[in-house]
């Protein structure tokens, strides 16, 4: 597995975590948990966008491995 695809896997996991947090947010009625999830998913979102930039960068560097 190239580094590029490893990073892409990680990016996908981040997406799935975000979705999982959203699901939890929708299914709970506890206000405490809702705020914590909001904070957490904000952090995950920033990380995901950051990693996305990195993926674009990696793809540009070695286009022959682009998937």
């Amino acid at each position: 597995m190239t580094v590029g695809s490893q990073v892409k896997t990680c990016y996908a996991t981040l997406k799935s975590i975000e979705a999982g947090l959203d699901l939890l947010h929708a299914s709970t009625t506890e206000q405490d948990l809702k705020t914590t999830i909001d904070e957490t998913s904000q952090l995950i979102k920033i990380a995901r966008q950051d990693i996305h930039q990195q993926i674009i960068h990696i793809d540009k560097q070695e286009p022959q491995y682009k998937s």
Partner: peptide, 25 residues
């Protein structure tokens, strides 16, 4: 794993974000 200091910094930054997220949730 990376030698590129810029990429290293980026990964490290996001790793810390996740750590913080884990700690909270």
């Amino acid at each position: 794993a990376t030698d590129n200091p810029q990429a290293k910094e980026l990964y490290d930054r996001n790793q810390k974000r996740l750590q913080e997220a884990i700690r909270r949730i």
